[in-house]
Simulated assay, not measured.
Amino acid sequence: METDRDELARRRAKYATGLLWHVGAFVIINVFFWVLDLALGPPGATWAFWVTGFWGLGLAFHLLAFLIDGRQVEDRLTRKYEQRQDR
């Protein structure tokens, strides 16, 4: 039982680290894109908006996956279906 808890903790830590790297890259690169867009682009041309928007959508899905995994939805559903099969 303790090994399951250790494995879950390791998995959550790995997901959290991956999410933090994703957030860090998102912030740093998008700040660079916005500065570049505002400095070099003609007025009104905000291509960085689209990059930030679509990447933000991907980041939102990454966050959602992290939150769903934290609730162990897959493990609970597996146990639920196993119980149904045992009946």
Results as ranks from 00 to 15, higher is better:
Met1Arg: 09
Met1Gln: 10
Glu2Met: 14
Thr3Tyr: 15
Thr3Ala: 15
Asp4Cys: 04
Arg5Gly: 06
Arg5Pro: 00
Asp6Gln: 13
Glu7Phe: 10
Glu7Lys: 15
Leu8Asn: 04
Ala9Thr: 04
Arg10Gly: 14
Arg11Gln: 07
Ala13Asp: 12
Ala13Arg: 10
Ala13Gln: 10
Lys14Cys: 05
Lys14Glu: 09
Tyr15His: 12
Tyr15Asn: 12
Ala16Tyr: 04
Ala16Gln: 06
Ala16Val: 02
Thr17Cys: 13
Gly18Ser: 06
Gly18Met: 08
Leu19Gly: 01
Leu20Ala: 13
Leu20Asn: 12
Trp21Thr: 08
Trp21Glu: 08
Trp21Arg: 09
Trp21Met: 12
Trp21Leu: 14
Gly24Leu: 15
Gly24Thr: 15
Gly24His: 02
Phe26Lys: 03
Phe26Ala: 06
Val27Pro: 01
Val27Arg: 02
Ile28Cys: 13
Ile28Ser: 14
Ile29Ser: 15
Ile29Tyr: 14
Ile29Leu: 15
Ile29Asn: 09
Asn30Ile: 05
Asn30Pro: 05
Val31Glu: 09
Val31Asp: 08
Val31Pro: 01
Phe32Trp: 11
Phe32Val: 14
Phe33Ser: 06
Trp34Gly: 01
Val35His: 04
Leu36Lys: 13
Leu36Ile: 10
Asp37Met: 06
Leu38Thr: 15
Ala39Asn: 09
Ala39Met: 11
Ala39Asp: 07
Leu40Phe: 11
Leu40Trp: 10
Leu40Glu: 05
Leu40Lys: 07
Leu40Thr: 10
Gly41Asp: 06
Pro43Ile: 07
Gly44Met: 10
Gly44Lys: 08
Gly44His: 08
Gly44Tyr: 08
Ala45Arg: 11
Ala45Asp: 12
Thr46Pro: 00
Trp47Thr: 11
Trp47Ser: 11
Ala48Cys: 04
Ala48Thr: 03
Phe49Ile: 10
Trp50Asp: 02
Trp50Gly: 03
Thr52Pro: 00
Thr52Leu: 14
Phe54Tyr: 13
Trp55Asp: 06
Trp55Tyr: 10
Trp55Phe: 06
Gly56Lys: 05
Gly56Gln: 05
Gly56Trp: 03
Leu57Gln: 06
Gly58Ser: 13
Ala60Gln: 03
Ala60Phe: 15
Phe61Val: 06
Phe61Ser: 04
Phe61Tyr: 07
His62Lys: 05
Leu63Gln: 05
Leu63Thr: 08
Leu64His: 05
Leu64Lys: 05
Leu64Gly: 03
Leu64Ile: 07
Leu67Met: 12
Leu67Val: 13
Leu67Cys: 11
Ile68Ser: 03
Asp69Thr: 05
Arg71Ile: 02
Arg71Leu: 04
Val73Gln: 01
Val73Arg: 03
Val73Asp: 00
Val73Thr: 07
Val73Ala: 11
Glu74Cys: 01
Glu74Val: 08
Glu74Arg: 06
Glu74Trp: 05
Asp75Lys: 03
Asp75Trp: 01
Arg76Trp: 05
Arg76Ile: 01
Leu77Cys: 07
Arg79Ala: 09
Lys80Asp: 00
Lys80Glu: 00
Tyr81Pro: 00
Glu82Gly: 02
Gln83Pro: 00
Gln83Phe: 00
Gln83Leu: 04
Arg84Ile: 12
Gln85Lys: 15
Asp86His: 07
Asp86Leu: 08
Arg87His: 14
Arg87Ala: 11
